[in-house]
């Protein structure tokens, strides 16, 4: 055997509760983060990711205490992200029991934070979250793709998918690897919330451009989507949120489904 593919439940947290909504609209309450974390951990989740979607200054203390509460009830790795912009903030989260921090906007605005964090904590602590979206205004110097006779490139977005940066996602992925990122959490804005499956093209291109692990995110609506992304790309992990929250699918059942179809998973 060798390294298994990871199945990672994601908990979007706002005001201390797990929520799920389509791009911040019509947000529904999905439960208590500590209880859900413990449940997923017991069901065989390979890792957990917490994203503080409010990510406001006032929420920082809440998140710190939430991190330590979660760390007490699980014995698998977990990553915390959302609004992390300074070394001090990242350090607070790591010292309270998180194993990794996920940074998006903070790294685009100040790429040096990646290297600074690596030197202090090691690269295994640093997950760079990349939110990417197709941009059909084709420009020179971008990595151009085409689907259905339409040409486009993948643009990096920040502030929770609200603001384009002009950065090419593939170039940015290579750059964050060089700066010291240990892993990439790749979300397809085009697929996120659709429940139509992961973005195979984007995922494959990013995975083939770097030598660090990549987590695919955005679009998972059923276990078949995880199978599809693992079969069609060399991605290391697949993240999903809503399929786990409402008891539609348990983590162990999804992993059994994958195993029966030849994907190496830990069971």
């Amino acid at each position: 055997m060798t390294l298994t593919k990871r199945v990672i439940p994601c908990l979007d947290v706002a005001d201390g509760r797990v929520v799920k909504g389509l791009h911040f609209s019509s947000i529904k309450d999905a439960g208590d983060p500590v209880q859900l974390a413990e449940k997923y951990s017991k069901e065989g989740a390979d890792e957990l990711i917490f994203l503080d979607i409010t990510a406001s200054q006032e929420q920082r203390e809440t998140i710190k205490s939430l991190v330590s509460k979660v760390a007490q009830v699980i014995n698998i790795p977990f990553t915390v992200g959302g609004g992390i912009k300074t070394l001090q903030h990242a350090r607070d989260i790591l010292l309270n029991g998180a194993d990794k921090v996920a940074i998006n906007t903070g790294a685009v605005k100040n790429p040096e934070i990646i290297t600074e964090l690596m030197e202090l904590f090691g690269k295994q602590c640093i997950v760079i979250a990349i939110d990417a979206k197709r941009n059909y205004n084709v420009e020179d110097g971008k990595n151009i793709f085409s689907e259905d006779n339409q040409k486009f490139w993948f643009e990096v977005f920040i502030y929770g998918g609200k603001k384009g940066t002009g950065l090419d996602a593939i170039d940015w992925a290579k750059k964050v690897e060089k700066l010291g990122a240990g892993e990439i959490l790749l979300t397809s804005i085009d697929m996120d919330g659709t429940k139509n499956g992961y973005d195979v093209l984007l995922t494959r291109e990013i995975v083939n451009s770097v030598h660090i692990p990549v987590i695919a995110s955005g679009g998972c609506g059923k276990p078949e989507h995880m199978l599809e992304i693992f079969k069609n790309s060399n991605v290391d992990a697949a993240l999903a949120a809503s399929i786990f929250h409402y008891e539609t699918h348990s983590v162990d059942r999804v992993k059994e489904f994958l195993k029966e179809r030849g994907i190496p998973v830990r069971l």
């Binding site: 390294l3 298994t4 692990p213």
Partner: peptide, 13 residues
Amino acid sequence: PTEMKIPHMGWND
């Protein structure tokens, strides 16, 4: 080995 993804991250037996 540099032909592998580094770090080696995840569950292995």
